[in-house]
Structures are given as C-alpha cells and as structure tokens.
Computed example of a mutant assay.
Amino acid sequence: MTSVPFFQLPFTVPNATGITLDQTKIGPLFPSTAEVQAQAHWLFGGDNPQYRDLLNDAVLAKPPFTLAVTAGGSGYTSAPSVTLTGGGGSGAAAVAVINTTTGAVTNIHILAPGSGYTSPPTVTLTGGGGSGATATASMNAAAPTLGAGFVTVSGQSGLMSPFYDGNNQTLISVIKLPVTPSATQIAMGYWSPAPVGGGIGYYNSSGAWTFGTRTTPNDTGALQTVVAPPTTVADTWLWLAMTHSPTQRTVMWGGGAYDSRTVTKFVSPTPGKVGIGNNGGTSFAGAITCAEFIVFDHPLSQAELTGVYGRSKARLGTRGIALF
C-alpha cells in the first residue's frame, strides 16, 4: 500500500486490498506542509534564505549574469546558437532573438541559470545564416530581498526553478498586490520573444492581471486579462494559478474566479525554466513580492485548484499572511 506522507486518516485499515481512497478529500494534518503531488513547493522568507523547496530540496536561483548584445550583425535568417564558456561555472543556457525584417540579433534570453559562476562567461554566437553579431556577459548584481514570509524580486533578480516551461503544467503563486502599479511585474512562468515563447501571469502598469501564452514562435501571445481585487488596499495578498494542457489554458485567482479557454501553446525545442519575477531578459522587470510558489507537472482541475487554495490559505495564515 502506498503511504500518503503528512496526512492523517480517520481510521486504520488492517488489509487495504481493494480499498481506494479519494486523495482530494484527505486534509493535511499540519497546514504548513507541502503539496505532496507537486514537483516542487516553495515558501519564502528569512527562514528559507537559500530558496529550497519543501519536497525535494530543489533550489530557485537567479541568473548569475546578464547578457547584452553589443553588435546585432546582419543577414540572420534564424537565431544563431549561443555558447557560454568559462566563468568557473556550468549549466547555463541562453537563446538569441533576431529581427526577421532586418536580419540582426536584437536580444539574448537566459534559459537556465546554471551554477558556480564566479566571473562572466564568454558569449559566442554561431550559425543562423548571418554574421557580425556579438554579445557580452556581466555578473548580475541584482539580489532578491527577503521579508517576513515573502521574497521581493525586481530588475533581473527573478528566480528560476529547475523545471522547464511545458504544455502539461500548473503554476501557482501568492503575490502581494502593489498599492500603486508601476512597471510590469511577472508573477510566474517564463516568457521571451521568438523563438522561445512560453506562458506567464503578469501584473501590468495599468493595474490588471494578464495571462499570456505564445501560440506560435513569432506571435505576441494569446492574452487573457482578468479582474483582480482593488489595488488600493495595502498588503493585499492574491492567490494565482495558471494551468496549461496541449489545447487549454485555465486560470484561477482569488480562490474562486475561474476562466478556461482554448489555447494551443507553442513549446520551444529550447524552452526556458519557469520561475517568479523577470528571469530571462530585460523586459517586464518590475518588482514582485511573493509568499509561495508551486509547480505541478500536470494541469490541475478546478476542484483540485480550489483544494490547493484552501490549503495555501491555511499554510500562509500560520505565517502571518492573509489571502484575499
């Protein structure tokens, strides 16, 4: 019989053969315990300075360096390959973005942060049918700020998980709404111009939550704007969920509002790793404050999302954070 960790059953079963338990109706023994069906589950604050998850010790990491195009070159008909060498680390990956009209390289986005870098790696661009493009790396001085039960990221201090953006996935985050919206803030996901794509939930400077999904390599995304609680209430915490299946995107916010739409998500052969805040490039670099981030490797149903919301409310309540 498979055990269910951290959960309490109201009875004992001497012989479990033939008995099936509905795990959606089993409540947590301790409200602060993790979502055991998730790939990873992070709670933030001074008690978790290394951003380790509650299930498997997976770590969220900011990109150790930033990348900038120093010359766009010309004649590129496809994005050149990006090679990162040196710097004392390993595992980092990036993708170039081109302007299909001018044939120049316009940007480079980080796909995976890697680890162990003590100095900027050398950036080499090859292929793509063009020439002359160059780029450079600089160590990333931006740093997240830890608070009482939360983390704030801004600029390029966004945190990337070990998990790639995908087409069967659920992302959940708990975000503090700003009193005055400013720059666009990414709550969760991964987003980049062509050819990577991705899916994100973000809060724009007009005060609206928007969920975006790239449906082809070169589109601007199938956008979905949702109504959030008033932003004039200080310290209002909002629970957000976004699921993707091969043909559907579902969002839930505030624990009750729910919307599901037909969207065929483009998944790049070189996807980025999902996270919170701006973690791939220079766009959408507003500050975001997050108390919880959860990644599932499958799309949750509305009933399952409602269950997670209730458990999040209990978990975070013990940490002094009251959900809307």
Rank of each mutant, 00 (worst) to 15 (best):
133 A>C: 11
198 G>I: 10
169 Q>I: 15
259 D>E: 12
69 V>I: 13
205 S>P: 00
227 V>P: 00
70 T>H: 07
226 V>P: 09
56 N>E: 05
116 G>L: 06
180 T>F: 03
274 V>C: 07
91 G>R: 08
91 G>M: 08
170 T>N: 02
65 F>H: 11
163 F>V: 15
55 L>N: 12
70 T>W: 07
94 A>N: 05
2 T>Y: 08
46 G>H: 12
211 F>D: 01
113 P>R: 10
246 P>M: 03
8 Q>D: 09
23 Q>R: 04
1 M>E: 10
287 A>F: 06
285 A>C: 01
192 S>K: 02
53 D>W: 06
284 F>T: 06
104 A>I: 00
202 Y>L: 15
208 A>R: 06
40 A>I: 10
75 G>W: 05
77 T>A: 13
211 F>N: 03
35 E>N: 04
164 Y>I: 06
176 K>I: 00
27 G>S: 02
279 N>F: 00
187 A>E: 14
100 T>M: 00
233 V>D: 09
217 P>N: 09
265 K>S: 09
109 H>F: 06
280 G>H: 07
159 L>I: 11
120 P>Y: 11
309 Y>G: 09
162 P>L: 04
75 G>I: 05
134 T>H: 08
6 F>A: 10
207 G>L: 01
27 G>R: 02
237 W>A: 10
15 N>I: 08
313 K>P: 00
152 T>F: 04
68 A>Q: 15
68 A>E: 15
261 R>G: 01
77 T>S: 15
67 L>P: 04
316 L>F: 05
103 G>Q: 10
214 R>W: 01
31 P>T: 08
104 A>Y: 00
183 A>S: 14
239 W>G: 08
253 W>C: 01
26 I>T: 02
83 T>D: 13
223 L>R: 11
161 S>T: 05
204 N>L: 03
282 T>L: 07
25 K>T: 06
283 S>Q: 14
247 T>D: 12
112 A>S: 14
305 L>D: 07
128 G>N: 06
100 T>R: 10
213 T>E: 03
23 Q>M: 07
259 D>Y: 02
131 S>T: 15
110 I>H: 01
3 S>L: 11
272 G>Q: 11
58 A>K: 13
301 S>E: 11
194 A>Y: 04
126 T>S: 15
52 R>M: 09
275 G>A: 08
167 N>H: 03
116 G>H: 07
